[in-house]
Amino acid sequence: MTRSDLYDIVIIGGGPAGLAASLYANRARYKTLVLEKVGLGGQLLSYEKVDNYPGFPEGISTFELVELFKAQAEKFGLEHRNADVTGMETEGSIQVIHTSEGDIRSKAVIVASGCSPQKLGVKGEVEYTGRGVSYCAICDGPFYRNEEVAVVGGGDTAVEEAIYLTKFASRVHLIHRRDELRAVKIIQEEAFENEKITIHWNTVVEEVIGGNQGVSELSLRDLATGKTSSLQVPGVFIFVGLIPNADFVPAGVKRDPQGFIITDDTMATAVPGLYAAGDVRSKSLRQIVTAVGDGATAAFNAGRYAESLAHA
């Protein structure tokens, strides 16, 4: 295959949204390519187990779920390439995608590039990333057997990962800037019942402090009293939200104030031929179950768009 080949649909990102889009696009016999910069699976691979994906009453490990998504996409002709997308532009009615492996041309594009963890933005965070500062509990939790760790955040991910970390850590300090958690109630209840979890309410991290051996302590501030304190921990896991992976998306695409891509209910963006699906999209609930729905809808409508060009 040469790089001048024209695709009907190119899907940027090989997570749940992208793989679902590929499944629907290939079954409709559109010439489809999935671009993934690391490996198929996306953010899903940063978690251990999924308990809320319908069809798996006992829950399913994320590894298994990714393998099942891949197997089904492959069965219907998944074509994917390892490439990092750096930019996009429109040439007439054709979308040109600039990648680390050269330009790729397509009639329609589905941006399913997901999100990255939001950083706290405090001193020491970047310096100690990988040496005590982490954004992935399943990856890095086992480095803290019988040690105390901190988790920052109050949403589903922060609280779930705090619970997960109690498998390894002797104590998990959950640091949250408000006086109540945002996480769904069933997860909150589990955290409140877990004797290894200590919640620090109305508290923020002001600095990550460490030395040659990595992180040694956190400087905390109580927002209610204004008092500062020190928490001696060798590790801090940060789950304070997500930022969209959308630096390469053209300026004509409308975004919400956080930078997520705005679409209509066909997943179409403000740029004709450009669709978005999954976590990168502006939406109220970022879950696997909503990502795959977006992917299917985007593939259906991107396909119709590609056909409309063919008949023009």
């Binding site: 690391v38 490996g39 198929l40 699976g41 940063s46 590894f63 990714v66 390892n82 990856c139």
Partner: peptide, 14 residues
């Protein structure tokens, strides 16, 4: 790497 690490598996082909 380690067997329990998803991103490690993702990066292995690279």
């Amino acid at each position: 790497w380690a067997p329990w690490c998803g991103p490690c598996r993702a990066i292995a082909p690279v």
